[in-house]
Simulated scan of single mutants.
Amino acid sequence: PALTGSYTNSDSQGIDHGVLLGTLFRLIGADISIFPNVGGRFAYRAENCARIRDCLRAPLGELRPAWPCPAGGMHMSNLGGMAADYGADSVFLLGGALLGHSADLRSSTGMFLDEIRRHFHERLEAPAKVNESTDELAEAVLRHLKFAPGFQWANRESTPYKDADDLAFKGVRRVELVGKFGEGTRCDLRYFEVEAGGFTSLEKHLHTHIVIGARGIGVLTMGNERITLEPMDVVYLRPLEVHQLRNQTREPFGFLCIVDHERDRPMKP
């Protein structure tokens, strides 16, 4: 929360506590939001903290909830109240209180953990199981996709461009290449092809795009800019940048697209 205090220290101006430290922090990618808890060194009230907590957990498109982290002068004696106010899916931050509790930091940390266990049931989970042998990996993941005429790939089928019909498009097919078949990558590689006179949906989203021209010539609109995209041209699309690809020729226009594996759904401009 450093440098954000000036936005929340007045009831008549600034930004709502939940919007700033909850919604906006989630939109910029925060998994944890640290904020001054009621009863600490700062003048946050109980309703301010509850608002932040609720905004961190409220539905927000495809984004997952984030963890509240009440802090700012908390002590061991505050843990019971924080447990009741925030619940298990939270992060409890004690800094100076640990140093002030005992000269033995290890002992203070142990007491802190004991106090946490007094309020919450401890649960240990094993990591997700991974393939245990090279043979299992070879069976689960096809690592060589043979290219075929007509911009096809062995063991990969063309699928509809989109399932939803709320975003207009015309004459587009897609081929999922890598990322949807157990590869364990953090990104997906797809191929899209637009028929003559066709176009992708005009959209925006929080995740970034990398677009690589592969076949024919297309026109990429991003914001107020229009780019002619030819084979092997590479374009980076920023978060929330409105974009669309069109084929204004008589030949197919195809491009490769790299996106995050975990990503939000497209939105209307």
Rank of each mutant, 00 (worst) to 15 (best):
P149S: 06
F151W: 13
Q152I: 08
Q152T: 15
Q152L: 14
Q152H: 10
Q152W: 05
W153Y: 12
W153N: 05
W153C: 00
A154D: 10
A154H: 10
A154Q: 08
N155Y: 13
N155M: 11
R156Q: 09
R156N: 03
E157R: 06
E157P: 02
E157T: 01
S158G: 01
S158A: 07
T159A: 12
T159V: 11
T159R: 07
P160S: 09
Y161E: 02
Y161W: 14
K162I: 02
K162M: 06
K162D: 01
D163Y: 10
A164F: 12
A164V: 04
A164I: 06
A164Q: 04
A164H: 04
D165F: 01
D165G: 05
D166V: 06
D166Q: 13
D166R: 13
D166A: 13
D166F: 14
L167S: 09
L167C: 08
A168R: 10
A168C: 01
F169L: 02
K170M: 01
K170I: 00
K170P: 00
G171L: 11
G171Q: 08
G171A: 08
V172F: 04
V172E: 10
R173E: 06
R173K: 05
R173G: 05
R173I: 04
R174M: 12
R174T: 07
V175N: 07
V175S: 01
V175R: 05
V175G: 05
E176R: 11
L177P: 09
L177A: 15
L177M: 11
G179P: 13
G179H: 09
G179D: 08
G179S: 08
G179K: 12
K180R: 14
E183Y: 14
G184T: 15
T185F: 05
R186M: 00
R186S: 00
R186K: 05
C187R: 10
C187F: 15
C187N: 08
D188Y: 15
D188V: 13
D188I: 15
L189P: 14
L189T: 10
R190T: 12
Y191N: 07
Y191L: 11
F192H: 11
F192Q: 07
F192D: 12
E193N: 08
E193I: 04
E193T: 01
V194G: 09
V194N: 10
E195W: 13
A196H: 06
G198R: 05
G198V: 04
G198P: 02
